[in-house]
Design a protein around this nucleic acid. Structure first.
Lengths: 197, 197, 197, 197
DNA sequence: ACCGACGGGACCTCCCGTTGTT
DNA sequence: AACAACGGGAGGTCCCGTCGGT
């Protein structure tokens, strides 16, 4: 890895955290400079604008999230096990998030829905992936008779993610992980009771 | 209502929408001036700073939300009816929100969790009220044997609100009300199946 | 005249001189601030951008030039007298220009011909006026038999202005008014010998 | 020609055109890099600063102009023929300039008269050469009785060059070669009528 | 109660130049 | 000989807030 690539990686890493905590319009380039130790020239050598940096930093953050979930799914083939694995990742999310500052997809969705179409599109893509993952688990689970045949993958995806993100938001708002825990407990019950074959 | 009060009311109304759409750090005083038609002096006559305006505008927005829900509860005494009334308000939320730009409480919780303590506290207060409402409905419902005795009001509050807000976020992200609808349908089932006595 | 108008007038006056001396891209807003004693906020209160300031400052400068020539024509009705009056203004131009820094029309034409269409258009308009003035003098002079009937007003305008501006450029380049003087002397001869009836 | 010299030549060629079109303060090193395809290091390998590059680029441009006129004079010994040859070069100048962007000497004289002494001095040198050429043609012409004995070489030089540059400026301002053509026609008449013996 | 003028600073962007590397 | 990475500062723009006027 060349020196430039190393710097860019570090820049993205720090910017991802910064933007995730303070939001895109709440973070200034001075903040980025402080976080990375680089000067303006150093930042603009790698990214032509704050907007471009934000886009790449979001992708970087979303990738960290994706990897966290992917890792939990490794080696698990049973659909119910896989869904429960997602929930167990969520359980750790509040106290040990992949990117400090909460879920980058939700944060971006909330901040950018009425103001930044480019970033919003990235968030949609990232959310599509998450929904696709859940949908595939359900579909394969039905095929293998691990999931009830009448379960709708889209509905489950919406429900899991909405509850998940909503619970995360509550825990962040109150700085109290109890909400996320309640949600996780509930989702386990839900999966066992209504999804499991 | 005096002329000054009328102006202040209009100012708060427009600022509430602006901040709810663009966020607090994403909205400038110029935006406020443009939205209200006032000049700088007109704004600062009523609010000593952007921060103070933001705080009052948030309260104004949260109040509009509160009223929307309160209205739906009027005349309903049965706990299940009341819970279902909340869900039915939620059903209209995406296409006809009390304040354009989504739920001010969630928006503020997401934007300000790591940056603006004063505003975050207001969001907590507003959320407390919402949770209290649900909790009281459940408690009274248990007392009147309309709700199963083993139902935990705090858990129901967390679950309802998390799912609600998460679904709203998804619908805003995708600009598609189907997610909110799925969530509403699910919550009705949940209430009928797991809360109703 | 209100305080704002007074400030704007002063701003334009100083900016006109600054831009005429250093060019539009050679002058920074810091230069404008230094020249006017205003801060950035004070400048941007009157002009929404440097570009807009430049456009108005050019018009201001061109107007000063126009007035200088118009003044010399006052009370003179004979065409030859009027043409000679223009030359006599030119004679004072190097040592006592209407706007320090040379002819704003030529300066702008040279600087902006390949880069700033908006400003170039203003320069064209200003030059049109100058050419129109000469053309009218010639036409009316022919009608009154003060000018030879075969003289072409357009040609005379082109010749007078080109020689005028070229001579001014030479005097500025060498910081020596002799070139302008030679040109003035020559133009007097030309008018007497080839234009006068 | 070594690779380095070839690069430097190309650099000067492109920079000369760039500076002549956009001016020295209107052109950035990024512009130079884009025009040449070189990176910053490639430029600074040959020139220690933008200022030095500008100086050499001006000389390069002035040399192209000089060669264009010198070429037209080749093989012509009669003074009037030589003067007319200069005019005929001028006739082609608008549509086919030695350096795109107009006359580098005039451009530099206008841009730098109040701001860049070093560059202004180069422009003076270049203009001196042009004036010297005309002056010598006249002097030798008088000696050979091709030119009227009372003609003043300095005056002719000033008049020719001023008219020439002024006409060029008008044609560039209006993007219309008619002005240059009128000037050329006039100068031919002038030479035939007032210079020719 | 509201407007308009202005200060002074932060914003993002782009500037020119230096240095290490190949 | 040329590139790539970076520093540090100036560029124009927009920010929030103050204050005199009306």
């Amino acid at each position: 890895m060349s020196k430039g690539e190393e710097t860019k990686e570090r820049l993205l890493h720090q910017a991802a955290e910064l933007f995730n905590k303070q939001g895109y319009s709440g973070s200034s380039l001075s903040d980025v400079m402080r976080a990375t130790g680089l000067q303006k020239g150093g930042v603009y050598n790698h990214f032509e604008s704050k907007e471009k940096l934000a886009l790449e930093a979001f992708d970087y953050a979303a990738d960290l999230v994706r990897k966290r979930f992917a890792q939990a799914l490794e080696g698990k083939s049973n659909a119910i096990d896989r869904l429960l694995a997602l929930v167990s990742v969520f359980r750790t999310y509040v106290n040990n998030p992949p990117v400090p500052g909460g879920c980058p997809v939700m944060n971006t969705a909330i901040e950018c829905d009425d103001s930044n179409p480019a970033l919003l599109e990235r968030a949609q893509k990232a959310m599509d992936e998450m929904r696709g993952t859940i949908h595939r688990i359900v579909s394969k689970g039905i095929a293998k008779a691990e999931v009830r045949p009448n379960v709708d993958g889209d509905r489950v995806a919406t429900l899991l993610i909405a509850t998940f993100e909503g619970g995360l938001m509550l825990s962040k708002l109150y700085r109290d992980s109890v909400h996320a825990r309640r949600i996780a407990d509930y989702l386990v019950d839900y999966i066992e009771a209504e999804v499991k074959a």
